[in-house]
Write a protein that binds this DNA or RNA. Structure first.
Lengths: 350, 350
DNA sequence: GCGCTTATTTGGAACGATCTAAATCATTTA
DNA sequence: TAAATGATTTAGATCGTTCCAAATAAGCGC
């Protein structure tokens, strides 16, 4: 089966110009829809563009214009549905604005984050949306991206502090308030011995959520036992494993505020394995409201964050920054709303 | 709070060259690690690179060299965990090979697919990994991407047929065989009246899975009632809604092979709502083995596809194509494996 | 038919890298 | 010491676009 397909050169402005007896500059004007060019010439050029199957070379244009038409999106865990939704929100808004998304996934590794950022920055993105890996700090990020490219931090703070760091925009979730809401809800349900389950202390979002929990407990005059704080990786798997730790000492809790939905779902599974019925014998709340939360057994009480909307918002914030590079840095704390389902019923003996 | 930060120009090869009294060409050689340049000059240049904080402009290099260092990844539904995992596999392998991923999400819309492809192609990706939207056809895709850029089709076939289309590589799942395995498993469990639940007839993967189901039923000499084929959108939500349709006529099925996990999870929910216990009164199988499948109640029998590994494989196939543009088109059908869990127990009365 | 204004078109230098072929420098060899 | 060899370095064109300033064409009043 022999193919006679010749390897066609790429069609450039010169080819079009030559093809319809006009200058390269004129074709360029047509492409950009300039009102300067004569209606008749425009038509001729447009025909020729179609005829030769021209495709615009945005890289060349960007080089000349010293602009960028891409934004880097660097996530600590793309495979997590929360971030997948976030990413699709980002891509949607960027696409509408004529930008393209450069994707980078770090898998919670600080080294990979550094490598990914250095690689992406060479492609000259107009800005970066970054959800940092656990333990990432400001100095590393700044070294990799330089001071020129605007950064929007999502979801987590960076460790360390630098003067430049203060100039970065942030979009955070209202972690502290959310955890407080969840805790207050459990208290209102009649619970008194409430644990805080899952997550790592070196993630800023986890610390904030824990703080919200402590706030609510303290305000209600409730004591907190040391073994009610169980740390796990923020995954379902590890949450299943660590379930027993809640019951190693007296007094045992009757409810737990969980770091996020993955952990909460894992905890419920672990409880089931121990013969404890979540939602009946033990109340559980999550954080994120992933799609699965509404469908688990029992359905999970959690804090809705609307990751897709956050993605759109992050993109908008960064685009705003691009159009006003000198504006003051903004920090937005997105509200979260409590969604009450059946996993957070009143305690048995009340 | 006044800032004295001056808007620094970007540092270029010329700046480095001037900064250490050497020519632009030499600096370029240093950057690319050429053995031609003298050890001593190399050191001087490298110091200067660091000192000025130089960052490589890959776009300019690509323009001159007529190469590309990016690959476009266009997905029909990024928010679906299956594709999110796939994407992270793709990104991982591309990153290792020094490529960057240009992301595009079409949300199952053919128009958006067209728009996304046209936009991405202007950034000059070296190739495209495409999981087509439902109802997308070869003509549209070809119009958008042209004949120059290699395409790797993942997961679905395109409608229509064109000579060029035959030259595209494909990575498909073994849908037909997978559905056959699931059906045979249910038959082996003692089921005789088995439905095929969910998905749309205009998706090629759905047609293939249905064919596998028919194969197995026919081979076993089992009849198929018309109302045992229920079409739904491939989402949990719609699967819940349509559940009743399985029971509108006699004889009612005792089991269902579902189009995918989302549909299967939805069906189980719908069954619960009708007082039918999935895994006890009614057997269900899924397809994909999303993370959730192992944790649902009951855990879901399904076909594991390892989306992350598929992502890596897709990236490898496309990279192979880039290095051998003239090689024959390859079609790979990735195997799927049956994972038996508790949702597919034997029928009650057997 | 001439100057004038307004519309349209255009050549050539950028943008920041790489490539080619040729220049320069350092060493040997005759 | 001159020519030859090999090791380094470099000037200048180039990739495909946009910008600028200047050229050309067209329309108009007198």
């Amino acid at each position: 089966m022999e193919s006679t397909t010749s390897i066609r050169r790429k069609i450039t402005l010169n080819d079009i110009a030559a093809g319809c007896g006009v200058s390269r500059a004129t074709v360029s004007l047509v492409l950009r829809g300039s009102p300067l060019v004569n209606k008749h010439t425009r038509a001729r050029v447009e025909d020729e563009l179609r005829r030769q199957g021209y495709v615009y070379n945005r890289a060349a244009a960007n080089l000349r214009r010293r602009t960028s038409s891409s934004i880097a999106l660097v996530l600590n865990e793309l495979a997590n549905p929360f971030f997948a939704e976030f990413a699709s929100g980002v891509d949607e808004t960027l696409g509408e604005a004529g930008f393209v998304t450069l994707l980078g996934n770090t898998g919670e590794s600080v080294e990979r984050e550094q490598a990914v950022l250095s690689s992406l920055i060479e492609h000259g993105p107009g800005g970066i949306i970054l959800s940092p890996a656990e333990g990432s700090d400001a100095r590393h990020v700044l070294d990799a991206v330089g001071a020129q490219t605007p950064v929007l931090l999502f979801n987590r703070e960076l460790g360390g502090s630098l003067p430049e760091y203060a100039h970065w925009d942030r979009l955070m979730l209202d972690n502290q308030h959310g955890a407080r809401l969840a805790t207050l809800h459990l208290i209102a349900q009649g619970h008194r011995r409430i644990a805080f389950y899952g997550g790592h202390g070196d993630s800023s979002s986890c610390r904030q959520r824990y703080a919200g929990y402590v706030d609510a407990m303290t305000a209600a005059g409730l004591p907190i036992a040391a073994h009610w704080r169980v740390e796990t990786a923020p995954t379902r798997m590890d949450a299943v494993r660590a379930c027993g730790e809640l019951f190693t000492a007296q007094p045992t809790p009757t409810a737990a505020v969980c770091y996020n939905d993955a952990v909460a779902l894992g905890l419920m599974l672990g409880l089931n394995q121990r013969g404890v019925q979540p939602g009946k014998d033990f109340a559980v709340t999550g954080f994120d409201d992933v799609a699965e939360a509404a469908f688990s057994t029992p359905p999970l009480t959690t804090l809705a964050t609307d990751p897709r909307a956050r993605g759109r918002q992050a993109a908008q914030l960064l685009l705003a920054r691009l159009s006003k590079p000198q504006a003051d840095a903004t920090t937005i704390v997105a509200p979260v709303t409590l969604v009450v389902r059946e996993s957070s019923a009143a305690p048995r003996n009340s």
